[in-house]
Simulated scan of single mutants.
Amino acid sequence: MNCQPWLKTLVYKCTNINHSCLLCSESAEQHYPLCVACEQELPWLDEQCLRCALPLPMDGLTCAQCSRRPPAFDQVVAPWHYGFPLDTLISRFKHNSQWPLGRLMAEMLGQNLHHRYLEGLTRPDLLLPVPLARRRLRERGFNQASMLARWLSKALAIPCAERLLLRTRDTPAQQHLDARARRRNLRHAFALAGEASLEGRHVAVVDDVLTTGATAQAVAQRLRQAGARRVDVYCLARTAKPGQA
């Protein structure tokens, strides 16, 4: 699939355009460290649910789950579906501390959002990264969602409150749980710092990947309880349903 037209406006903060592609190590020959061939290989997400961005066979539809039970968040924005080679990039960023990959993906997400704002998507008042469980934060040494939110905040000129949303208890890793177990796992897992109020505010939650939406749902419910008027979710990628390409 060809790269998206909004991406052509991305000017990476580098004075020399002859740097190497972060995916294949060949000369990028662009203003950002990604060659044209690798850019075209990214799994761009076009046809998707209007609410949760689940990959669908046609555009302009709402998935069955969002139709039956509308989520607490209003809209998910994700440029890609979670497939090769993006899954490798995210893994290298999260588990191998390859931060330049995270920054590149964050800037591309930022350009996607700039384009969406021009098309009518409402800009949020505040960015809130999904907090990481303390045990995993100690193991990893950083919260990838916080880093993405920080880069997005700079690119979009939207304030980021890294310590407003708290993880109140460590929970088992989500990746090996089904949707129902994920929801149970996240009950009462999030809180707001102090007596923070979001009355009437539009906030965007930042994370790397949205899988079942259980984390986004739990966070959005807590933010709604704090008075948030609208809750969007900004992430790099959206997974498909199990067994779906």
Rank of each mutant, 00 (worst) to 15 (best):
P43H: 03
R169N: 11
P159H: 01
G213E: 00
T62R: 07
C49T: 06
D74A: 08
Q40W: 13
L89W: 15
G141H: 02
P55L: 10
F190Q: 00
L101K: 09
R201S: 11
A220C: 13
R169Y: 09
V206L: 06
F142G: 13
P55D: 00
S197K: 09
D170I: 06
Q244L: 04
E162I: 00
E47G: 09
R68S: 09
I90L: 15
P55S: 05
L56K: 06
C21N: 05
A72F: 11
L152V: 01
N185G: 13
D207P: 02
T211N: 12
N16I: 11
P43N: 06
G227C: 10
E41R: 14
Q174W: 11
G243T: 05
P33C: 15
R180Q: 05
T122N: 11
V76R: 04
H31I: 04
R163V: 00
L126F: 13
R222S: 01
S197C: 07
K94A: 03
E107I: 00
R182M: 03
P124D: 00
T215L: 07
G227M: 08
L101F: 12
W6E: 13
T239C: 06
K241Q: 13
A53E: 03
S27M: 12
A64Y: 12
T239Y: 03
R116N: 04
N16F: 13
G120C: 04
R116E: 09
L54T: 14
E41Y: 01
E199M: 10
V219M: 10
A72K: 04
C63A: 06
L86N: 14
T215C: 03
D178V: 00
A161Q: 11
E162W: 03
R183N: 01
V205C: 08
N18A: 08
I17C: 10
A240K: 11
A157D: 05
A37H: 05
R68V: 05
L177Q: 09
Q30Y: 05
L165Q: 03
Q174K: 11
L223K: 10
R51G: 00
L10G: 08
L127T: 02
R238C: 06
L121Y: 01
Y12E: 14
R123A: 15
W6K: 12
A226K: 14
S197F: 03
R140P: 15
C35E: 04
A64F: 09
C3M: 14
L148S: 07
A214C: 05
D59H: 13
P85W: 07
W99F: 13
V203F: 05
E47D: 15
Q225L: 13
Q174C: 08
L177I: 02
Q244S: 04
Y32P: 06
V203W: 05
L210A: 13
R180D: 04
H19A: 01
H188E: 08
L101P: 07
H202S: 06
L50I: 10
A204G: 00
A72D: 11
S25M: 14
L7I: 11
M1D: 08
L192G: 02
